[in-house]
Amino acid sequence: MTAIIKDREYLDFLSWQKKMGCPKTKLTLAEFSNTGRGMMATKDIKAGEVIVQVPERTLVTMKSLQSLYGARIARFGNKVNAHMIIALHIALLVQAPEESGWLPYLRLLPKKFDTMPVRYPPELFDLLPQNVQAHVHKQKAKIMSDYKTTLEFLRSNSDLLTRPLQYEEYEWAWLVVNTRCIYLDAKKQVAADNIALAPMLDFLNHTPDAKTEGFFCTKTKSYKIRTLLPYKKGEQVFINYGPHDNCFILVEYGFVTTSNPYNYVTVDNDFLELSIPGETPTAKKEKLDLLDMAGYFGDYVLHRNDVSFRLMTGMRLRLINPFHKSSVATQLAIAQWHDVINGELDQISSENERMVPIYIEKLCDEMLAHAKTKLNILVGTLDYKQ
Rank of each mutant, 00 (worst) to 15 (best):
Q17E: 12
P164W: 03
T227N: 01
I360S: 08
T258P: 08
T373K: 15
Y120R: 00
A96R: 14
L319V: 09
I143C: 15
Q130F: 12
F216D: 02
L302Q: 02
I225K: 02
C247R: 13
P121I: 08
G314C: 03
H370E: 14
L151T: 05
E56I: 06
G295T: 02
G278A: 05
T42S: 14
D12F: 10
Q17L: 14
P261N: 10
K285I: 01
A41R: 05
I249L: 08
V132W: 07
P97C: 02
M20I: 06
W102C: 09
Q236C: 12
L27D: 01
N260R: 02
A210C: 08
L160M: 11
L363V: 03
S100L: 04
H338V: 15
N260W: 00
D7T: 07
D365W: 02
N269H: 11
A210Y: 01
M39A: 13
P129S: 00
Q66K: 14
Y264I: 07
S275T: 15
L160G: 04
M144Y: 12
K372C: 13
D209V: 09
F113W: 11
Q139F: 00
D12Q: 13
P208I: 00
L27V: 00
P357E: 10
M20T: 03
R119M: 14
H135R: 13
E9A: 15
G38W: 09
V54C: 06
I358Q: 12
K219V: 15
A192G: 08
A74H: 11
H137T: 13
L160C: 09
A198E: 04
K148A: 13
D12T: 11
L311Q: 03
V80E: 09
Y296A: 08
F297L: 15
P208Q: 04
K233L: 00
A82G: 12
S350G: 11
N260L: 02
L127Y: 05
K233G: 01
R310D: 01
W174A: 04
Q17W: 04
E171G: 09
D268N: 11
L128T: 03
P322S: 05
V118D: 10
T2A: 13
W172V: 06
M20Q: 10
D12G: 09
A210S: 07
S33P: 04
L127C: 06
Y69Q: 07
P117F: 07
S158E: 13
S308K: 05
Y167T: 06
L274H: 01
